[in-house]
Amino acid sequence: MTIEIRNVVFACPGNSPESYDRGARRLASFYADLLEMRIAREDWFVLEDENELDGLNLAFGDGPIDYRPPRWPDPEHPQQMHLDISVLDLDDGEQKALTLGASRLQDRGSYRSYADPDGHPFCLYRDTTTDPTRRTRLGRIERVVIDCFSPRAFARFYAALLDMPTRELDTPERVVIARSDGRLPAVAFQHAQFPAPRWPDPAYPQQVHLDLRVLDPEAARLSAARKLAEDLGAVKLHEGSTHNVYADPAGHPFCI
């Protein structure tokens, strides 16, 4: 049984169905242009990578109508999750991000942090890979980064759930786990203290959540995947006809 991240889903602002749609479309267009992806679905604005079949998708439009965006680094308006994106050249990557509507938050030399048009932070790193097949685009999602209090404890949950046994980095402040075959994205966990999301409470919204999928959708394997999540410490929040919603040990919602 293989469980993997299928969608990274971003919440978007809006106080009416019309403005909500426009907000989701705007954010989807931003990431589509930044990462050279395409909008494959417009009911909730799913981006697909035409260069990678069955690769990681981004989706937009999830969140309450009175959504409150993140304001990094303010812990009262936490980011909860963000993307680490590799680029061939940081200056070129920054110019493109700023032109599309991002705002620079910090420059740490080896990487730079930005806020997208709705306030979600993301980081650009210089791509150091020597594999020519991975250097075909301006930007590539390398890591999904999750904020939590204890990175090492939290990494154990996702390493077991997603079968990601490799630790590329292991410190008290930050842990990075990866698949043994090297397929992206890796998942990172960084220490942070912030009010945890309490889905579906709009006063404590999720900023980003993960949609997980079982590669073999056979009912028995799907049931086993959901049982595994609960055995590892996830709490079921909602049972639906197509997917169940869970909270991980830090309160982040995810779907299987």
Score class of each variant (00 low, 15 high):
203 A>P: 03
199 W>S: 01
224 A>N: 06
223 S>C: 05
244 N>Y: 11
206 Q>L: 00
210 L>Y: 11
235 V>A: 14
204 Y>G: 00
226 R>T: 02
195 P>K: 08
246 Y>V: 06
237 L>V: 03
224 A>C: 01
199 W>F: 15
200 P>D: 10
224 A>R: 13
218 E>R: 13
228 L>F: 04
232 L>K: 10
214 V>Q: 04
240 G>C: 08
197 P>Y: 11
195 P>C: 07
232 L>Y: 08
236 K>E: 14
235 V>N: 10
205 P>F: 12
241 S>D: 14
216 D>T: 06
194 F>H: 13
209 H>I: 05
220 A>S: 14
233 G>S: 09
210 L>G: 06
240 G>W: 09
198 R>C: 08
241 S>I: 08
246 Y>G: 07
227 K>Q: 15
246 Y>N: 07
245 V>H: 12
228 L>I: 05
212 L>A: 04
202 P>Q: 04
227 K>T: 15
234 A>P: 02
197 P>E: 03
214 V>F: 03
211 D>G: 05
231 D>M: 05
198 R>P: 04
239 E>R: 14
243 H>P: 00
246 Y>I: 10
199 W>C: 01
227 K>P: 00
241 S>M: 09
230 E>G: 03
227 K>F: 00
213 R>M: 12
240 G>H: 11
218 E>Y: 04
205 P>N: 10
229 A>D: 03
214 V>I: 07
208 V>R: 02
222 L>S: 01
232 L>R: 09
213 R>S: 06
194 F>I: 05
221 R>P: 00
200 P>R: 12
205 P>Q: 08
199 W>G: 01
226 R>D: 02
207 Q>P: 08
229 A>M: 10
207 Q>V: 13
223 S>T: 13
225 A>V: 02
237 L>M: 14
232 L>D: 08
245 V>P: 01
246 Y>R: 07
245 V>C: 14
217 P>A: 09
244 N>F: 08
231 D>H: 09
208 V>I: 15
216 D>R: 12
219 A>Q: 12
227 K>G: 02
198 R>N: 10
238 H>N: 08
198 R>V: 09
229 A>S: 10
216 D>V: 03
240 G>E: 11
211 D>L: 10
223 S>H: 11
222 L>Y: 02
212 L>V: 03
220 A>R: 14
230 E>H: 01
197 P>F: 05
231 D>Y: 00
245 V>R: 15
221 R>S: 11
225 A>Q: 06
222 L>M: 09
230 E>T: 15
